[in-house]
Design a protein around this nucleic acid. Sequence first.
RNA 1: GCCGAAGUAGCUCAACGGUAGAGCAAGUGAUUUGUAAUCACUAGGUUGGGGGUUCGAUUCCCUUCUUCGGCUCCA
Length: 636
Amino acid sequence: MLKITLPDGSIREFEGAVSAHDVALDISEGLARVALAARINDKLCDLSEMIEEDSTVSIITFKSDEGPEIFWHSSAHIMAQAVQELFPNVKVTIGPAIENGFYYDFDIDEAFTEADLEKIEKKMLEIAKGKHAYTREELPRNEALKMFQEMDEPYKVEILSEIPEEETISVYKQDKFVDLCRGPHMQNTGLLKAVKLLKTSGAYWRGDEKNKMLKRIYGISFPSKKELKVYLNNLEEAKKRDHRKLGKELDLFSVSDDIGAGLILWHPNGAMMRHLIESFWKEEHIKSGYKLVYTPHIGKSTLWETSGHLGFYNEGMFSAIEVEGQDYYLKPMNCPFHIAIYNSTKRSYRELPLRLGELGTVYRYERSGTLHGLMRVRGFTQDDAHIICTPEQLDGEVERLIDFSLNILKKFGFKDMDIYLSTKPEKSVGEDADWEKATESLRKSIEKAGLEYKVDEGGGAFYGPKIDIKIKDALNRSWQCTTIQFDFNLSTRFDMEYIGADNQPHRPFMLHRALLGSIERFFGTLIEYHAGNFPVWLCPVQVQVLPISDQYIDYAKEIQDKLLQAGIRADIDMRDERIGYKIREAEMKKIPYMFIAGGKEKENGTVSVRRHTKGDLGALSVEDALKAVKDELDSE
RNA sequence: GCCGAAGUAGCUCAACGGUAGAGCAAGUGAUUUGUAAUCACUAGGUUGGGGGUUCGAUUCCCUUCUUCGGCUCCA
């Protein structure tokens, strides 16, 4: 048992050996995936370092009197100066601090090469060494406008020209560089001691693809070389968790050029895991009062006209398939089909709430540049459900939904998640009063569950407010999993009704929800979250039986048989190889349990148990070994 | 789709104007093994596809597909 003191003073206890990374995962501050560094007993260390008993650990983003945001924003200014000095024809635009580092967008025709980045890094350190003070100057907008016009910086002029004339604006100067900026900045450039420009990319001016594409440089900087080294190491470690890399190594899935981009092939190992996820999902849904349905993968154009998808979602749909003069579309969403089931008969308030669930496979046209492993694909299966209820049932439904969702996610070991409440956007359909009621219902439910959340003002869909739960990948990128969305649009478009106690027709409330989001994306985040070391219940092979040599294969088969009888997925490595080799292979496949069977074991009716990530656990009777596996399964 | 980078054996990579190599994996044989790699041999490639320049292209150019990092978009 390890006792570790966390930054807030609380004490956490851990079973077995833990690394700083394990602790980082345990602190849900959103930076667990790529915490910049850890401090163990006040010593800066790598996240892969093991922690000793009674340690004090803090996961830090920075070691500086300046907050990272100020530091990185100031670094962006230094980069802009360096680029301006090295490439005089460049036009500067904007350059903020981001979660891990900073970027700056430049207007320049030629692309930045790797060699350019190195030159820029050198120049930045040179500027930093000059210990130039950052000075703030306030001046009337018109004067600033004139100044930037003279400097021939059209992007700065564009920003200024949108500010009312009577306002005063601020500019920051360091060395020879002047930038329009609100600040604040650090005292002088000398605090920057280490910088790495990580990557370049294109970025549209003001994020609008109708505008010119600028060249963006991303970088990270620190007040010491050691911190940069630790950060880069952690980045390397994070890359090892990439679901695409692990997907190949563990033989879980692939994509084939011949089949098409963004279309996933689930290999036997991945398919077994998917089967386990889906079976669990179905059982839980049935227990929670859902009715499972199946619906077709294509539907007639008239359906999509009624739903409105051909209007507002046309760009996300695959083109039509013509059959006997009638256009059919691959479904990008399951909703119209579920609604068709609802509308197939006259509904009474006594039937509500009606919860229709389906693992529904949908196809969406995603632009080629946006595809990303399992996270963004063109064909995927949503764990979709639509809850149709009366206005009075709303609060209760949302509450049990959040509870249900968190319970499901918990089973997969997720602890570190971000919750967002998205409210009414400018363009929307539905009555204001309904929006109000729905939004409040969502808010109350999150608060009642005691969850922390962020509000995304105006971030809702045009058809209703929503709650999203996002999980971060190995590189700290957020991916939306759970989404709970109101829909004021489709219920009207499809003229959904129920007959109330008053014998009058009423419009029901409808909620869309997907808890895992899509099976593909969920699987991707699952792989990265656990770095391939899945909970035992999800492992395609839970126990690998390893006979020491040919003569113990029979004994190994006996053991395997007992395991299979007990419902445990067990394989035997019968190859003519040494035990060290078989162990290595099983370890690399991240199989949780290895049962080693040789002469000693056969004689005593035991197996030598080895647990992945823990090592040799010694000999146990076959029954006890089996019980150890079952106990772990029960605790998950 | 846009800005950039990249595609060589199943995997990880090398060679770079003179028709491709290594390690691991695979196959065969020897070995019968005690907690992260036993040895030997064998086979494996129209260097993503198509076109061009050249006496000759994996290498240079064009085009197309796919992948990667971003932008935009989103489960």
